[in-house]
Structures are given as C-alpha cells and as structure tokens.
Design a protein around this nucleic acid. Structure first.
Lengths: 206, 206
DNA sequence: CGTACTTTTGAATCGCATCAAATCTGGTGG
DNA sequence: CCACCAGATTTGATGCGATTCAAAAGTACG
C-alpha cells in the first residue's frame, strides 16, 4: 500500500503507526455498496479516501436521514468504543476506503502517544464541527443558514462548493428548491457573489 | 475537597488522576455568572457539578444561540486543543463547577492511561449525542422532533423532563408556544401520555 | 404580597415544504 | 457523433405549519 500517496490525500493518516499500517486494507467501493449496517458488531474502523460515504438512519416512514456525509476522513469514530453500530454506512458514490481492524486500532491508541493525540484532536474537531452544525440548523431562515455556513466553513466569507447544491441543501436542512431560490434572491439583492461553485459574501463598498 | 461525593454525582470524575485532583478548584457559581468569554485564552477546563451552564453564541441580531446546555459534566471539551474559546459560558442557574488548570489537564491525559481512555469515550459519546441532535433538528415538524427526542433520549419511549419546557423548546429548535401547542395536540390525539414532567409515548392496545 | 418567570391560549402573517414540470447537464452506449 | 437517460438545476403555484406578537393565567421565591 502506498501510504505516502494516502497521507497526501488525507493528512490525518500521517499519525497512523507502522504496526497498524501493516494490517490495513485498502478497499475499493462501488456506489450503493454497504460498509456496515445498524446493529453489526464493530470490528472495523473505516477512513474514506475518495468517493463519498454516508451514515444514514431511517425514520418510521422509511425516509432516510443523513447523519454524516464524508468525502474523506474517518467515519463513525464514535462507534470505536461501542459494541455495535448505531447507523448504516452506504457509499453514495464509488471510491475507496481504508479498513482498520478495530482491535488493532484500539491497541495502537494505547501504545502510540502521537497517534492518540491525533485521535483526540480529531474527535474534538468533530465535536466543534457538529456544534456549529447544530447552531446552524437552529436558525430558522434559509438565508441565515447559508450565511452562517459561509462564515463558519469558508475562509474570508467565501467557499468553493465541492458538492452539488442539492447535497448542500440537505446539509443545511433545506429543500433544494428553497436553496436555489434563496441563493438567487441573495445574489439579486447583492448580498452574495455567486460564480458557479464559488460563492462569496459581497463586499459593500463603504 | 470531597472527591468521593463529587464522584457519586459525576461518575466521569472517577478517572481523574490524583496529581490533577490536587490542583483542582471547586468553585460556586451564581446564576448569570460568566465562566469564560469567546476569545479568552483556554487556561481552564470546567466540569459542571450542580446547576446549569450554557455555552452560547450571539448572531448578528444579538439573539442568543445555545450550543451546549450542561447540568453536569465537562463543557467545551473541544476547546482543550484550542488556543481560545469559540463561545461564551454562562451559568443559567446557580450551582458549582470544578476548575482544572488546562496545562495540568493535558499533561494528565498524556500520563494516565485510564484517564485518557475515559476522555476518549467521553468525546466519542459527545459526538454521538451531537449527531442525534443534528438528526433531530433536520426534521421539520415539531411533532417529529418531539418523538425523535423521546425515542433517542428516553428509555422505552418515556422521559422525565429535568428542565422547563421553555428550555426544552430551545433545545428542540422550536418556540415555546409551538412546543406547548404540539404537546397538547399529541396528548389529545392519544400519541403521548403527559403527566407533569413525565412524558411517554402512549401504548396503542393492539 | 409582589415580582419574575413559566405556562397557556389566540390571531395573523410569512416562509418553507410540497407537488409539478421544464430545462440543463454529464455520462453511456449504439 | 448522436440518441438517450439519470440526475441536477430552475421556475411556478399552493397550502400548511411554525413564527410572531399579544395577553392572560399559573407558579416559585424572596
């Protein structure tokens, strides 16, 4: 396995200790493939390299709810301490993932201080990100959620959308129609500069 | 300081190593008191013992958004790895907190394996809880959010509300009026059994 | 007893979801 | 190269439900 290339695409992997690298499998995944199902015993830890994996649950009507959408990085980190998964993991588009045996992963956390520190900061950054997400979802206008996203995710109030707007709408907890309409409105009234995938908060000339 | 009593109220404290206990301060807080402000350097780690502390941020209109509401346990865990706080911490009601020096806290994580494991599972459980919260906030009817809360927070679909309904409404991302009305409706149509602070999903006799 | 806060109900409004449909896009295979 | 298809993007019309503003009643606490 070419770890150098992997680390370039996922810097978080740099701290994976050699012993764990030896037992890591690089697996290709097809769109629609299931990595694990709710209730399965946690025997593996996954890291998305390319493509997109989603953690989903279903409500009583069968509607699917996306818990996490990952286009790179670990998924279901919180499950490492659990017996069983609490959601399904499905590939939304083809790509590849790393599969680490969970036992060895836990052992490495115990033995390797650098790896452990990296893991703790990874969890902490996940907590921060999720809190921002909750904060955003508790805003109740589409425009406020968009602006909040731009301010918290983007640098200097500008983002380069690396996903379809439809997927972005789902992340913002909006329907895609509302997102399209609101973006249009914000562009028309001069709040946003929109150029394809690049969206920026307009500078008001003072 | 009586650690035995503290541990009974907060089992998570059991893994705090002796060296860290020696430098821990047990401080009383008054309602409305500020523990730290956004931008302050992270020099302390706080654990709520009694009372209620909230992490809040303010949007551009000055409306306050609650990021975390704690009635026991660590707050702003993700800040341990940061230079500065990214929100304010304010006591919503009088109580007491433990204050740990951040440097010593970090050092203890490095030195004590049990403490470190406890901290990692604490972070992981926070991630799980926040994901559930995001999942809930992306439901767009008041009734669905209430039911989701009952199913994910309560045992066997019943909860004992340990907060005012107004505070619960804020947590659900609803206005208190909507929560009152929806609870009433769910009770009237037989979906919920409500008796003061005890709320349960009604059993439909099949 | 009075004050502050929560709980409750009412009425009006606004914005988002929903359903529908047309256009555009990228990718596949003939 | 073109036909075709699936999915994304866009626009329109409608209805519902949450917010908002308002006010009254209940409750805890000093």
């Amino acid at each position: 396995m070419d770890w150098q290339a992997l680390i370039e695409s996922q810097p978080a992997l740099a701290s994976i200790p050699p012993a764990l690298r030896l037992v890591t499998e690089h697996r290709k995944i097809k769109a629609g493939e299931t990595l694990f199902r709710i209730g399965d015993r946690v025997q593996s830890m996954f890291c998305v390299i390319t493509g997109e994996v989603r953690l989903i649950r279903h409500d009583q009507h069968g509607a699917q709810i996306v818990l996490q959408r990952s286009r790179g990085g670990f998924i279901a980190e919180a499950s490492l301490g659990s017996k069983a998964y609490h959601c399904d993991a499905v590939a939304a588009e083809a790509g590849s993932v790393l599969r680490f045996p969970a036992r060895k992963f836990r052992a490495s956390l115990d033995e390797d201080a650098l790896f452990r520190d990296a893991w703790i900061s990874h969890l902490a950054s996940e907590v921060r990100k999720l809190r921002a997400q909750c904060e955003r979802l508790s805003l109740n206008s589409a425009a406020e959620r968009i602006i909040h996203y731009m301010e918290s995710e983007g640098k200097v109030g500008a983002i380069n959308l690396n996903q379809s707007r439809k997927a972005w709408a789902a992340e913002l907890g909006l329907t895609h129609e509302t997102l399209y309409r609101t973006l249009r409105r914000l562009q028309d009234d001069g709040t946003l500069d929109i150029d394809g995938a690049r969206i920026a908060i307009a500078h008001t000339v003072s």
